[in-house]
Amino acid sequence: MLNIQNLHAKIGGKEILKGLNLSVNAGEVHAIMGPNGSGKSTLANVLAGRDGCDVSKGTVTYDGQDLLKLTPEERAWAGLFLAFQYPVEIPGVNNVYLLKAAVNAVRKYRGEAELDAVEFLALIKKKMKIVKMQEELLNRSVNEGFSGGEKKRNEIFQMSILEPKLAILDETDSGLDIDALKIVAEGVNSLCNEARSIILVTHYQRLLDYIKPDHVHVLSGGKIIKSGGSDLALELEKKGYDWIKEEVA
């Protein structure tokens, strides 16, 4: 599904990713952990095609194609979804309106008929139940005045509607209360199947109590310095990152 080889990326001339390798197969859940500033969000942004993240070396193939050649929207059409660490507010743009435009853009790309208002509403109603999204939030401007947790939940709601092939969740668990965490985890789990892959960027083991990762990676200094199974996360929770850094050094 996704294969990253020796990825180097710069932001504003500063090298952030320094030879990162990662391979994700269809149906797998990968967790990426690592200290603040180690490059986790940068990786997510590079994969989603954000301007200003310049790839200087390395390759990324996604679903058999060169991901780095695609524009951000083309990546979205190809089923890549990024739940942002800090979802941006867009005043005056209705949440449902944006979502409908997004769904129809993807459908158009796939050569499917666009959903009309009635069909779309039915879809929304169905998905709202899954992530227990309040109707009131849907009719507000995108993320405007949303609490931190509401923003995160909105990201998951969007994800459940867009049904991506590869979802990258950048610290979607941060700032969630315990109930919300469970709901978000259920949302993610309900999406899991053998055709879908998920990359979870997180600082906390507790999310992994609800979503079982197949692989856990430690990103530090712009590289994956250690990979393991779900018990690695438990170990990190107890011991922090220093011991790995020493081990690698």
Partner: peptide
């Protein structure tokens, strides 16, 4: 740029 990127990431041109 953040708002634009957000929309584009969702598939909107």
């Amino acid at each position: 740029e953040e708002q634009l990127f957000y929309c584009r990431q969702r598939g909107i041109k």
